[in-house]
Nucleic acid binder design. Structure first.
Lengths: 245, 245
DNA sequence: ACTATCCAAATAATCGATTATCTGTCAAGG
DNA sequence: CCTTGACAGATAATCGATTATTTGGATAGT
């Protein structure tokens, strides 16, 4: 289905976008399952940024042995969500204004570049995937009162952004973007439970998607850049407000 | 020394550039040592691209237990040099024309961007580091007959490129560039034991470095881009010649 | 011959116990 | 009162053995 996944960074344990999963989707080994659970725990803020991860406690919490625990943590290192130091153990990556700003800047650079390449190279199937992802996202409500809707929305939002750039034919670039999206999502999950009033995010997504399938390179790229930039600005404000320097 | 290493991707086990290492430089745990040895084995081509890594054999070869072996391999996954699949084990990342071309393209985009940021933000110490790295590189000969000189040159070359962009103040970006450099170096180590006749690589490096410290943004970026592009072209030719599709 | 099914060897994943390293605390010496 | 060193508890790293999964080949059925 995906055309070229030859070299490094072939998708390792990412979720398959397609809906009809009749064959088991990874999640096989305990290590994999742990990676997923931990990833969710970190991105959702359940595991506080910067906090140390005590192996013994984690082992008991998840009822597993050290080996798969380390295995799972190792993957989160690749994702940039966990840091490690020899003989000093693991800790959840810390957050900071500088970190957020770097993530935003790099997303503007890389994601926009990837979108441009997708528009240049993407086929009809890619277009279809984009429109589907857009539709599913826009039909999903975000209700701050019901956490499960937030989770669902986050999932579809992530899916939308990844689908947009999925036509670029550059696995490594996709890997980088996926990673940046992970890091970015944590900030949003933690600091932003609702959209700032002066934005119509659904419309922003629609504009990007429509520009993309119409191959209006400059327009779509510009819209995406602004979209990312606005989110960055909003997050920065909330970060400042809610206390973290 | 390095200004901000706050968020994700603080340097994990990278080699310290400075020469006078009076305190132990990481390399502590067996896992770390293994990661280094395996990285060198892969980049040098000793471990063939695409080949499967049999845990049992590796365990015996290196006289270690599974735990540190997996630990080491996990790090190489972060480096993009090893791939992993649940219940199917590890294998050395394969090489391909498409992969090489992506690496080259991304280096042109990211490394040039990082250089521009370095010139914008770098301080005098950064300038000094660049000039030192340049000097050390240019004073080192590459003799195809003596492998140890090649290794030494590769190390200094890598160091030079990383130093160039080390002033950008963006740890994540640096991480990405380091990764791309790793991937790229393997191609060079395997396919290119000497420089193509029509190039004066030392001079290319000098031009980039001098443009950088003179803060001549456009010139330095252009030189770097060309430098990367030429290497990509050379590698592509050798790849085609020496048989791999 | 061709496919499907089952078995055994190979290989990966996990566990529980052991060893090595670190961290904080307290006492002795300056 | 501050520094230094040693101890003990906490924590991380490693090991060897055990369990689970995959793979290749032999066998039976069509």
């Amino acid at each position: 289905m995906v055309p070229d996944d030859d070299g490094a960074f072939a998708p390792t344990t990412e979720d398959a976008p397609s809906s009809s999963g009749f064959l088991d989707d990874g999640k096989n080994t305990i290590g994999s399952q742990l990676a997923s659970r931990l990833r969710e725990a970190i991105i959702s803020g359940e595991l506080q940024a910067g906090s140390k991860i005590n192996l013994d406690k984690a082992r008991k919490t998840f009822n597993v042995s050290l080996s798969p625990l380390r295995e799972g943590l190792a993957r989160l290192i690749s994702d940039g969500l966990v840091e490690f130091e020899d003989n000093r153990g693991y800790r959840v990556s810390s957050i900071s204004l500088a970190n957020l700003e770097e993530i935003t800047t790099l997303r503007e650079e890389f994601e926009v570049f990837a979108l441009r390449e997708s528009m240049r190279l993407g086929d009809v199937e890619w277009e279809g995937n984009v429109m589907r992802a857009l539709h599913r996202l826009n039909r999903t409500e975000r209700d701050a009162a019901r956490p499960e809707t937030l989770e669902r929305w986050e999932e579809l939002h992530r899916e939308f952004h990844l689908t947009l750039i999925s036509g670029c034919g550059k696995p490594i670039l996709l890997h980088f973007c996926r990673l940046l999206l992970n890091l970015n999502d944590r900030y949003r999950r933690v600091f932003l439970t609702r959209t700032s009033g002066d934005r119509n995010v659904s419309q922003e997504h629609s504009e990007i998607a429509q520009g993309a399938v119409a191959r209006d390179l400059d327009y779509a790229c510009d819209m995406l850049r602004q979209h990312i930039h606005r989110t960055g600005t909003n997050l920065r404000n909330h970060l400042a407000t809610k206390g973290i320097l």
